[in-house]
Computed example of a mutant assay.
Amino acid sequence: MPTASSLGLTERQAVILTVSFYMVTALIMVSCNKWALNTLQLPWLLLWCQMLIAVLLLKATDAAGMLKMPHIRTDVSKALIPLISINVLGLGVNTLCLVYVDTSFYQIARGLVLPFTVIFAYILLGQPSSKMVLGSCFIVFCGFYTGVTTELNVSQLGVFFGIVSSITTSLHAIVIKKSLGAVNNSSIDLVYYNNFLSLLVTTPIVFLSGEVTLVLERLEDAGFQAFHSFLAAALVTGIFGFLVNLAGFMQISKTSPTTHMISGAVRGVLQTLLGYFAFGDIITSGRLMGIVLILSGGALYTWAKDKEMQANAKPTYIPMTQQDVDHDDDDGDRNHAGKA
Rank of each mutant, 00 (worst) to 15 (best):
242 F>T: 04
127 Q>V: 10
141 F>C: 08
11 E>N: 11
251 Q>R: 10
277 F>Q: 06
329 D>W: 10
255 T>P: 09
200 L>E: 02
89 L>E: 04
15 V>R: 14
104 S>R: 02
5 S>T: 11
129 S>Y: 02
335 N>Q: 11
64 A>I: 08
133 V>L: 04
271 Q>K: 06
38 N>Y: 06
138 F>V: 14
301 Y>V: 03
26 A>M: 10
19 V>S: 10
202 T>L: 13
283 I>M: 10
23 M>T: 10
186 S>V: 10
81 I>C: 06
303 W>F: 12
19 V>A: 14
229 S>Y: 13
335 N>G: 09
266 V>G: 13
44 W>F: 15
107 Q>M: 06
142 C>V: 09
48 W>C: 09
175 V>D: 08
328 D>V: 08
152 L>H: 12
301 Y>A: 03
40 L>E: 15
115 P>L: 05
58 L>T: 10
105 F>V: 00
321 T>P: 02
208 L>Y: 10
224 F>A: 07
172 H>C: 04
22 Y>R: 12
220 E>M: 08
223 G>M: 03
80 L>K: 02
280 G>N: 14
50 Q>F: 05
74 T>V: 15
64 A>F: 11
309 M>Q: 07
253 S>E: 14
105 F>C: 02
185 N>D: 15
168 T>D: 03
271 Q>A: 10
152 L>K: 15
204 P>T: 00
75 D>S: 13
57 L>R: 07
87 N>H: 14
336 H>Y: 09
246 L>M: 12
118 V>L: 09
23 M>A: 15
33 N>W: 00
34 K>A: 04
23 M>Y: 01
325 V>M: 09
271 Q>C: 11
310 Q>W: 00
202 T>M: 13
305 K>E: 13
166 S>T: 01
94 N>S: 11
272 T>L: 13
250 M>T: 08
297 G>A: 01
199 L>A: 08
142 C>L: 15
236 V>I: 12
169 T>S: 12
219 L>S: 13
64 A>K: 09
292 V>E: 00
166 S>P: 01
315 P>K: 01
16 I>P: 00
190 L>R: 09
128 P>M: 06
195 N>P: 03
110 R>V: 07
135 G>I: 03
236 V>T: 07
80 L>Q: 05
284 T>D: 01
145 Y>Q: 07
331 D>M: 11
309 M>W: 05
247 A>C: 05
194 N>P: 03
66 M>T: 14
50 Q>P: 01
172 H>W: 11
317 Y>I: 00
135 G>S: 02
105 F>Q: 04
158 G>R: 04
254 K>A: 13
54 A>R: 09
14 A>W: 06
171 L>P: 02
114 L>N: 04
227 F>S: 02
288 L>N: 02
13 Q>E: 14
274 L>H: 08
168 T>V: 08
338 G>W: 04
167 I>W: 01
293 L>Y: 06
107 Q>E: 06
245 N>T: 14
209 S>W: 01
277 F>S: 09
113 V>A: 04
331 D>F: 09
145 Y>A: 15
19 V>H: 04
199 L>W: 11
239 I>N: 03
228 H>K: 11
224 F>S: 07
213 T>V: 08
6 S>R: 08
34 K>H: 06
323 Q>W: 01
254 K>N: 15
154 V>K: 07
287 R>P: 01
132 M>R: 14
141 F>S: 10
78 K>E: 04
46 L>C: 04
48 W>N: 08
